[in-house]
């Protein structure tokens, strides 16, 4: 609505505004998780045995299933974008739905994991809680919050896809996809750090 007509030009970097801001935001997110990982590195070195015992107690099979669910949902997200760009609305809705389903699947597995931790008394304030589990709940908790935060706009886009006009903005879905891949990638770091880094002497004892 500007009176000056030459102001609304194409983005100078050729990257849409939302996507550029999303890249900046992902840099920011990276630093956010870096804060946690920094703390993790320091405290793991001063509480080596506690962290080893904690890692050995975690259920890595469930986490591995979750890893594949998230990677799979990243793939379906990419396929959803591809189909929306090629105006294949049916396939777009299918893959978007599968992505959301992946998010739900991840959260359900997380719920199973958390409830077994609760039964073992590992929650903060419970008797078996250690500083390792502080990190476990902090990092997986914030990661799960990111999953939920991604699923909300996905659900909106998914339901918009059923209207007559369909969802008209492929670039916005692409921006959301960037975020979703980031959430996936963050899990790829959290998974080995929490579940797989078990020192030999602890692993042998179990």
């Amino acid at each position: 609505m500007s009176l000056a007509l030459n102001l609304s030009h194409e983005p100078i970097t050729k990257i849409p505004h939302g996507k550029l801001a999303m890249w900046a935001f992902l840099a920011s997110e990276l630093m956010f998780f870096s804060g946690f990982f920094g703390g993790f590195i320091v405290l793991r070195n001063t509480n080596y045995d506690v962290f080893g015992a904690g890692s050995a107690h975690l259920n890595w099979t469930l986490a591995l299933i979750n890893t594949f669910i998230l990677i799979g949902s990243s793939l379906t997200m990419a396929l959803a974008i591809h189909n929306l760009e090629h105006k294949k609305d049916g396939a777009f809705r299918l893959f978007m739905g599968l992505t959301i389903l992946g998010g739900f699947g991840f959260l359900i597995v997380k719920y199973i994991e958390y409830s077994s931790k609760f039964a073992d008394g590992l929650f903060p304030g419970q008797e078996n809680h250690t500083v390792f589990y502080s990190f476990y709940f902090l990092m997986t908790g914030f990661h799960a919050l990111h999953v939920i935060a991604g699923m909300i706009p996905m659900a909106y886009i998914f339901f918009k896809g059923f209207t007559k006009a369909g969802y008209p903005y492929p670039s916005k879905v692409e921006t959301l996809g960037l975020y979703w891949h980031f959430v996936d990638l963050m899990w790829i770091f959290i998974f080995p750090a929490l579940y797989l880094m078990i020192p030999y002497h602890v692993a042998g004892a179990h």
Binding site: A27, S28, F32, G35, F36, F137, L138, F142
Partner: peptide, 22 residues
């Protein structure tokens, strides 16, 4: 963009200590 999230991480950890007694 690069600094504030690190503070947020620290505050989140401190909030856990304060509220959940981690």
């Amino acid at each position: 963009t690069l600094g504030t999230p690190v503070l947020a991480a620290g505050l989140a950890m401190l909030f856990f200590d304060n509220f959940f007694h981690t």
